[in-house]
């Protein structure tokens, strides 16, 4: 376990060296600027739009970090040949993969936590400056803690995307890994259509194939409860629990696959 944390620590430090924390500054500046500017253009919908924007930005920034740092986690070490030095240390290949994954996950958690604080600070400002009439027109309170549910699920989605990027990073070039990861992310959001394929095709084989793909490809739509929390619509605890459990199982499968591929790689 120590070896895993050692690799994770190194991966985290590397992401800091890669200026990943700058995204948090960009996020904070964007949120503050938006809260000033948007009210002029939105005909009284500033709070809803700030919430939409904040949650979407957390998701997009996180996705960019997960994909573009994730795809280099292994391939960069191989390209720089630093993997040889690492593997001569008492670190096994599975520990290397798990450590890399954990390192990026910690980066994402730190990033998302800071963004959450910045997000709530902007909402706090809006809450304190709002009049009673404005508050009465809000669908949900500005500081509604239920928004944390959406943020937790964004983290779940990012954990899954990171594992996908890491898997591709073990056997392909960074460019190809980025394309494949983004492709799967897009497919993951269209996944629901595959489930309904049998309603639009006559062929049972095609319908069965579509259903198989539905279960095989990552299903990312359930991670998106941003609209619900913005409107204060309750999100069932069972949905959150099952979605996070799905993420954990899928991530585990991807990590096992990544370990299996990385184990077989010949670096000579």
């Amino acid at each position: 376990m120590r070896a895993i944390w050692f690799v994770a620590g190194a991966a985290f430090k590397e992401s800091v060296r890669d200026r990943v924390p700058y995204t948090m500054v960009v996020f904070a500046v964007m949120m503050i600027a938006a809260s000033y500017l948007i009210s002029e253009l939105t005909a009284g919908q500033d709070l809803k739009i700030i919430k939409d924007l904040g949650l979407a930005a957390m998701s997009i920034f996180g996705l960019v970090i997960a994909v573009f740092i994730g795809i280099g986690l292994v391939s960069k070490e191989v390209e720089r040949k630093s993997v040889f030095a690492l593997l001569t240390k008492p670190i096994t290949r599975p520990q290397f993969i798990l450590g890399k994954y954990l390192g990026l996950l910690v980066t994402l958690v730190v990033n998302l936590s800071v963004m959450t604080v910045a997000y709530y600070l902007v909402l706090f400002y809006m809450e304190t400056t709002a009049t009673a009439t404005m508050r009465a027109s809000w669908a949900a309170p500005a500081l509604d803690p239920r928004q944390l549910i959406a943020i937790v699920l964004i983290m779940g989605e990012l954990a899954l995307v990171t594992a996908v990027a890491l898997l591709f990073s073990t056997f392909s070039s960074p460019l190809l890994a980025a394309l494949l990861t983004l492709g799967l992310w897009v497919a993951g959001h269209f996944n629901h259509d595959l489930r309904q394929f049998e309603q639009v095709v006559d062929s049972r084989a095609v319908a069965a194939l579509a259903r198989g793909l539905y279960y095989l490809l990552p299903n990312l739509a359930p991670f998106n409860v941003r609209a619900e929390v913005v409107y204060g619509i309750p999100v069932a605890a069972s949905h959150v629990g099952l979605t996070l459990l799905y993420a954990a199982a899928y991530v585990a499968a991807l990590l096992v696959a990544a370990i299996a591929i990385f184990r077989r790689r010949d670096f000579k």
């Binding site: 924007l53 979407a56 609209a227």
Partner: peptide, 17 residues
Amino acid sequence: LGFQNLMADTYWIRAVV
């Protein structure tokens, strides 16, 4: 791709403008 609310906000701002 899951960002329909943000897209709706963008179109709302466009409608207002």
